[in-house]
Simulated scan of single mutants.
Amino acid sequence: MSETRPLDLTGDVGLLTAALVDVESVSGGEKALADAIETALAPLAHLTVVRDGEAVVARTDLGHAERVVVAGHIDTVPLAGNLPSRVEGDLLYGCGTSDMKSGVAVALKLAAALPSPARDVTYVFYDCEEIEAARNGLGRLARTRPELLAGDFAVLMEPTGGEIEGGCQGTLRAEVAARGKRSHSARSWYGVNAIHAVAPVLERLNSYRAREPVVDGLAYHEGLNAVGITGGVAGNVIPDECVVTVNYRFAPDRSLEEAQRHVREVFDGYEVRFTDGAPGARPGLTHPVAAAFARAVGGTPRAKLGWTDVSLFARLGVPAVNYGPGDPNLAHQADEHVALGAIAACERNMLAWLGAP
């Protein structure tokens, strides 16, 4: 691997985004980028820099009454032939441009440009967001160094198209199992076909009416869907088990336990096994510092239809929102890209907020 060039935190934010993109950082392989970020931040006298694994935390300590957290993950999904980055017109193409190295670039620019922000700021650049939750770097910090994430308000710089997205949905996955009895398919009447027995499960999903609750002024849209089905033993065997895997995306007015109870009710009469789950987070827009952020950024806040790490901040008692320059619909695509003008606009808005009393 070629040597990583030093990051220039004083130049154009679009060029900085391109430099970040060109340092490959697929989940689990973030060391080179974490090293470059730490090296760029360490000389800044107004910041205290802490390294935790492949996460880098930088903090001001000016004694302000308020502290805000600005966070972004530095990992990406696996490459799809989309490195190195390239520019076409106003668009920067490359793996992680939208999700979320453009947001990371904005945060790094803020860290360098604001030696005396109007609020104390903690900048968090963390690893392993794109893979299983057990390896999530922000989750690791929440478990082992929660004091580093303390604050009155947090901005997670996930791609939102430059609009505030409040809170996030919760998510869970469950296996809904039907049991049968094996037999030879030539004498099927001696068995009970488990694949046939899941037909009512699919019918319940087809007829399911998802809730669209309004939570703290923002409209959420839930979803309960089959995302996989497994069953079958051999081409001449009546199967004795069939499992439908379902994913429930639920609004933050329900706890994870309430969401699990709801799924059990929907599939009453079937065996339900929960395999994964994470609670949502209510919109973090009621705190005065959040209101100041909304005024500086402008636009109309909307609900986050998906799960993000604002949920982790919510569990720490820190209200948080999602806000970043990328388009979330382009995340993980081979032609992932971000508008250079959108990155610059995000930087201006964040500077106006953090620099204003």
Results as ranks from 00 to 15, higher is better:
residue 32 A to F: 10
residue 215 V to Q: 14
residue 141 L to I: 06
residue 25 S to W: 11
residue 14 G to Q: 12
residue 128 C to F: 11
residue 248 Y to Q: 08
residue 62 L to F: 06
residue 245 T to R: 06
residue 204 R to S: 00
residue 153 F to M: 11
residue 339 A to R: 15
residue 90 D to F: 09
residue 340 L to N: 13
residue 52 D to M: 14
residue 4 T to I: 15
residue 261 R to G: 03
residue 240 D to T: 15
residue 101 K to P: 15
residue 78 P to K: 09
residue 159 P to G: 09
residue 62 L to A: 00
residue 321 V to P: 10
residue 127 D to E: 15
residue 87 V to A: 08
residue 283 P to M: 13
residue 176 V to M: 01
residue 218 L to Y: 11
residue 151 G to F: 04
residue 333 Q to R: 15
residue 73 H to E: 06
residue 356 A to K: 00
residue 345 A to R: 07
residue 34 A to M: 05
residue 339 A to D: 11
residue 353 W to M: 00
residue 80 A to Q: 05
residue 202 L to I: 04
residue 239 P to E: 09
residue 69 V to N: 05
residue 125 F to Y: 03
residue 247 N to E: 08
residue 325 P to A: 04
residue 128 C to I: 11
residue 31 K to V: 15
residue 345 A to L: 08
residue 237 V to K: 08
residue 146 P to S: 00
residue 189 W to E: 01
residue 278 A to K: 14
residue 248 Y to C: 07
residue 55 A to I: 11
residue 180 G to D: 03
residue 303 A to P: 09
residue 59 R to V: 04
residue 155 V to I: 12
residue 342 A to I: 12
residue 264 R to F: 07
residue 216 D to I: 13
residue 247 N to G: 02
residue 16 L to D: 02
residue 36 A to G: 08
residue 231 G to S: 10
residue 34 A to G: 07
residue 211 R to S: 05
residue 253 D to S: 03
residue 206 N to C: 01
residue 115 P to F: 02
residue 78 P to E: 08
residue 345 A to P: 03
residue 264 R to N: 05
residue 67 R to M: 00
residue 7 L to Y: 05
residue 149 L to F: 07
residue 270 Y to L: 10
residue 209 R to Q: 07
residue 102 S to D: 05
residue 112 A to C: 01
residue 27 S to K: 14
residue 155 V to L: 07
residue 312 L to F: 15
residue 82 N to V: 05
residue 290 A to K: 06
residue 155 V to F: 01
residue 267 F to L: 02
residue 21 V to D: 06
residue 116 S to D: 13
residue 129 E to P: 10
residue 306 G to D: 13
residue 26 V to F: 09
residue 290 A to N: 05
residue 111 A to M: 10
residue 332 H to A: 08
residue 252 P to C: 06
residue 340 L to M: 13
residue 240 D to P: 14
residue 262 H to I: 03
residue 69 V to S: 02
residue 145 R to N: 09
residue 275 T to L: 10
residue 245 T to D: 05
residue 140 R to P: 00
residue 166 G to E: 06
residue 213 P to T: 13
residue 310 V to T: 13
residue 300 T to M: 11
residue 312 L to I: 15
residue 273 R to E: 08
residue 92 L to D: 04
residue 353 W to D: 03
residue 174 A to V: 07
residue 334 A to C: 11
residue 94 G to C: 01
residue 45 A to E: 06
residue 291 A to T: 13
residue 196 H to E: 10
residue 92 L to K: 14
residue 247 N to Y: 04
residue 37 I to H: 11
residue 104 V to Q: 07
residue 152 D to G: 12
residue 218 L to E: 05
residue 65 A to R: 01
residue 336 E to A: 03
residue 48 T to W: 03
residue 169 Q to F: 12
residue 109 K to I: 07
residue 208 Y to W: 15
residue 347 E to V: 02
residue 234 A to K: 02
residue 304 K to D: 02
residue 68 V to E: 01
residue 329 N to H: 15
residue 1 M to Y: 15
residue 21 V to T: 07
residue 269 G to W: 12
residue 151 G to Y: 09
residue 144 T to P: 00
residue 270 Y to T: 03
residue 100 M to K: 08
residue 88 E to Q: 06
residue 212 E to Q: 09
residue 319 P to A: 09
residue 43 P to K: 05
residue 184 H to M: 01
residue 232 G to N: 07
residue 191 G to F: 04
residue 211 R to F: 00
residue 294 A to G: 08
